[in-house]
């Protein structure tokens, strides 16, 4: 689809551990979880597994669902806090459509990109991980709401 780019899924720590999917206690556990991810979710992109300390994840900022595009040679071309496969795909199409040589160049840009939230699908994911994942996320939402209230009061 994008012949100039290899698209990889980089497996990190589990964002929402639960009874059926615990935090990784070691590299073998992490590998087993990565295989389950491939087989149960049906990820067809090649999966890269980070070490159990998250060395590469740490180097790229530790966010749970970020996307990066690295040009041939290792220059960062795209950095996003959240993954939108459609947004990355459009970006790659633009890069691949650009004529080679002096007829085109690049410019630095920043933006706030829109993303659709599929809350029901996310909820099903939490439930798959286990009841604990559901209640802990609900508690986290209360913490976020409290933070937002505090920020409104202080501004």
């Amino acid at each position: 689809m994008h012949p100039g780019y290899g698209w990889y899924f980089l497996y990190t720590r589990e964002a929402h551990p639960g009874e059926h999917l615990t935090a990784h206690g070691g590299f073998e556990e992490k590998l087993a979880a990565a295989r389950r991810l491939r087989d149960e979710i049906g990820i067809t992109r090649p999966i890269l597994v980070d070490d159990v300390e998250g060395t590469v994840h740490r180097a790229y900022g530790l966010l749970p669902n970020m996307s990066w595009v690295l040009d041939r040679g290792g220059t960062i071309a795209y950095k996003a806090m959240w993954t939108s496969a459609a947004h990355v795909g459009e970006f790659l199409e633009q890069r691949e459509a650009a004529p080679a040589g002096p007829a085109s160049s690049t410019f630095y840009a920043e933006l706030l990109a829109p993303i659709a939230r599929d809350r029901p699908a996310f909820q099903r994911g939490l439930e798959r991980n286990g009841p604990r994942a559901v209640t802990e996320f609900a508690r986290a939402e209360e913490i976020w709401a409290e933070r937002a209230r505090a920020a409104r009061h202080s501004s």
């Binding site: 980089l10 991810l37 041939r72 994911g125 991980n129």
Partner: peptide
């Protein structure tokens, strides 16, 4: 950095980006 290609070999990111561009999508089960 070095990673393990699932059911494959260890690879460095610099080996992946030597010939092609690389998209890295970070994630877990959720």
């Amino acid at each position: 950095g070095e990673l393990l290609l699932l059911d494959g070999e260890r690879v460095r990111l610099s080996e992946l980006w030597r010939r092609n561009g690389v998209v890295l999508e970070f994630g877990s089960f959720t």
